[in-house]
């Protein structure tokens, strides 16, 4: 099987890897690039644990081929904190105990970050719909929603 040379920009850095055309972007991130923050919960687009941004669009990296990322930018959970400074969403998730096993957390954070970019002042209902493709088997969602709403409020004040 001939491998394909893929050139991408991941979290702002130029990254190249060789991909079997059947490999998903999730497999490439985890196995070739060493970024294991994105998780595989289902591999079929249902759970959102593999959420990343591809050219600024929120997608399931398990439903994108690694070769499709050629020439594109990819943003993963590893790019969310700035050095040692956690993103407000990350801090609020800790404050609100919005995670238990943590498996869903990277995907939810990536998805929530995109939500607050598109809609800095979402209602609870909008937040729940936006995150409908992110499954959590532990928390019952309530603390996740509260953490996102709280982070949104804090981020709005910072800008104002």
């Amino acid at each position: 099987m001939t491998k394909v040379h893929v050139q991408t920009k991941i979290n702002g850095d130029a990254v190249e890897f060789l991909a079997d055309p059947r490999e998903t972007l999730l497999d490439c991130l985890r196995d070739h690039v060493g970024l294991t923050g994105s998780k595989e919960g289902c591999g079929t687009g249902d759970c959102g644990a593999c959420s990343v941004e591809l050219d600024g669009t929120l997608v399931c990296s398990c439903l994108v081929l690694g070769v499709e990322a050629n020439g594109k930018t990819v943003d993963t959970i590893e790019g969310m904190a700035t050095g040692n400074d956690l993103h407000p969403l990350q801090r609020k998730f800790i404050e609100h105990a919005a995670l238990q096993c943590g498996f869903c957390t990277p995907g939810i954070l990536v998805a929530a970050k995109k939500l607050l970019e598109v809609n800095p002042d979402p209602t609870e209902e909008e937040t729940r719909y936006w995150l409908a493709g992110n499954l959590c088997r532990c928390t019952g969602y309530d603390k996740i929603i509260r953490a996102v709403m709280d982070a949104a409020a804090e981020m709005r004040q910072e800008v104002a």
Partner: peptide, 9 residues
């Protein structure tokens, strides 16, 4: 069709 993530594709 699908979730926010699916809508992206």
């Amino acid at each position: 069709v699908g979730s926010t993530q699916i809508q992206g594709r």
